[in-house]
């Protein structure tokens, strides 16, 4: 029973990271109909920035906040420089451009920091927490708390601030928003900045577990795809719920079902993606899309 509780909490911890990455994907998908294949690589690069800061003697949480600022600026900059020119291009062009970003950022990280796997310091205490007689790892609990706070702040931002409202308006009704004086282009760039911040936080949270290397986010992004698809790719709530479900289910499957183990977790995520897209493409929370003829 204790074992099960530990496994569930540990599943929620990875799940909240999937949820954050999925939310980052959904933020961009909602505003411009683009799947940002480079989202994971942006997160990986930000995590390297945090690592570099820690190496230079900045305390862990200081590095955390500086990285957030860097990630935000990077996201905004990339949108302005790279995505803006192809904003209205066909889907294939956008997919290839984000894959170009993926490849370039992956290579840059390898160029700057090499391909040797590096340990990443955990920002949380290493002694387990005793809750109700069960020992939980402080890393797991910390990850869940940080992720939930992040998601809560994002949601507050979109629901309660003028800027958040403007961003939602720009995403849903770009033409009408422009008439109302909202700078739609900058709203999209802000969206990329926010998504990049959410990604950076996920990267820092998961790095102590998966370690730091340029390919660290490759499987995480697939889990995030699975979470986003499961929840409905247009639904922020869906992304979060999808991520948490996926984290717990994959962790329990990996632990208790011998045949799946660690290696086939990715295959399970792939199976979820395909099954949801074939059976119910709108996911758990999305609306069915209608194709205009």
């Amino acid at each position: 029973m204790h074992d099960l509780a530990q496994q569930i909490v540990s599943g929620l911890a990875t799940g909240s990271i999937f949820a954050s990455m999925a939310l980052a994907l959904v933020l961009i998908y909602r505003s411009m109909g683009v799947i940002n294949f480079a989202q994971g690589e942006l997160a990986m690069f930000s995590t390297y920035v945090a690592w570099q800061l820690v190496q230079m003697g900045v305390p862990m949480w200081g590095a955390f906040f500086i990285t957030i600022v860097v990630a935000f600026a990077g996201g905004v900059l990339l949108e302005r420089l790279v995505i803006r020119p192809v904003e209205r291009a066909p889907q294939l062009t956008l997919v290839i451009v984000t894959l170009g970003l993926f490849t370039a950022i992956n290579g840059l990280a390898g160029w700057f920091w090499g391909y040797v796997v590096k340990p990443f310091p955990t920002p949380f205490p290493t002694t387990p927490l005793q809750i109700g007689g069960v020992a939980f790892s402080a890393q797991d609990v910390g990850v869940i708390v940080v992720s939930l706070v992040t998601l809560g702040l994002i949601s507050l931002f979109f629901q309660k601030t003028k800027l958040g409202l403007a961003m939602r308006a720009a995403a849903l009704y770009p033409d009408q928003s422009r008439v109302l004086g909202i700078r739609v282009g900058w709203m999209l760039a802000l969206g990329w900045g926010l998504a990049s911040v959410v990604g950076a936080i996920s990267g820092i949270m998961i790095a102590p577990v998966v370690f730091l290397d340029p390919n660290m986010m490759q499987s995480v992004i697939v889990y995030a795809f699975a979470a986003a698809v499961l929840g409905g790719i247009e639904s922020p709530i869906g992304a979060v719920v999808g991520g948490l479900i996926l984290g717990v289910v994959l962790n329990l499957l990996g632990t208790y079902v011998e045949a799946i183990g660690n290696e086939l977790r990715l295959a399970a995520a792939l199976a979820i993606i395909v099954a949801v897209l074939v059976i119910k493409p709108s996911g758990l929370f999305g609306r069915a899309t209608v194709q205009r003829v």
Partner: peptide, 28 residues
């Protein structure tokens, strides 16, 4: 046959995942 059901970007997403998962099948 599966791809018939996945228009545009969804097909990209599913095939991306297939490519990332391939080595883990081979290892398993």
């Amino acid at each position: 046959a599966i791809a018939l059901r996945l228009a545009g970007v969804y097909l990209a997403l599913a095939t991306f995942s297939l490519a990332v998962a391939t080595p883990s099948f081979l290892k398993h």
